[in-house]
């Protein structure tokens, strides 16, 4: 499974995108998806430095491909309006993080991104993520989106 309840945080405390990324990486580490937090975070932040992974609508999808990842994962957190240098300048409150092992990186994360993006284009999906109060509801919606 790409995502499970342990990879979801309904109220992640973070003031900056760096902090949010680090905390999401810790979740993936605890789940055994990441074998080296620092190297994974470094890979994700390197991308962030090149361009913002905010996609508008209050959503950011940071990601990293590196051999610090054991198996592909998708994590999700709701945060309190973080500045993510968004193209529409809106603060980000929904964060998806993707990790893919270097060897597998070819098309795997592009496929996950495409499926997730198709659903994120829809207002009702974003609303569901914002309003859901249980991890179970989020998990069901996200799993269906990336299936």
């Amino acid at each position: 499974m790409l995502i499970n309840e342990n990879l979801i945080d309904m109220n992640l405390e973070a003031d900056t995108k760096e902090e949010a990324i680090k905390k999401l990486a810790q979740m993936a580490y605890k789940e055994g998806r990441v074998n080296d937090i620092d190297r994974y975070v470094e890979a994700v932040l390197k991308r962030e430095a090149e361009y913002s992974t905010s996609v508008g609508f209050g959503v950011a999808i940071p990601h990293g491909k590196t051999d610090a990842v054991n198996e592909p994962f998708l994590g999700f957190a709701k945060v309190k309006g973080i500045d993510w240098s968004a193209p529409d300048e809106k603060p980000v409150d929904l964060v998806f993080i993707i990790g893919v092992p270097e060897a597998q990186a070819g098309n795997e994360h592009l496929k996950i991104l495409a499926k997730l993006s198709r659903r994120l284009m829809k207002d009702d999906f974003r609303q569901l993520l914002r309003q859901a109060s249980s991890k179970k509801d989020i998990l069901a919606a996200v799993q269906e989106a990336v299936a």
């Binding site: 905010s54 508008g56 609508f57």
Partner: peptide, 9 residues
């Protein structure tokens, strides 16, 4: 839209 582009996969 960046999100739009990503939907293309």
């Amino acid at each position: 839209s960046t999100l739009g582009l990503l939907t293309l996969g």
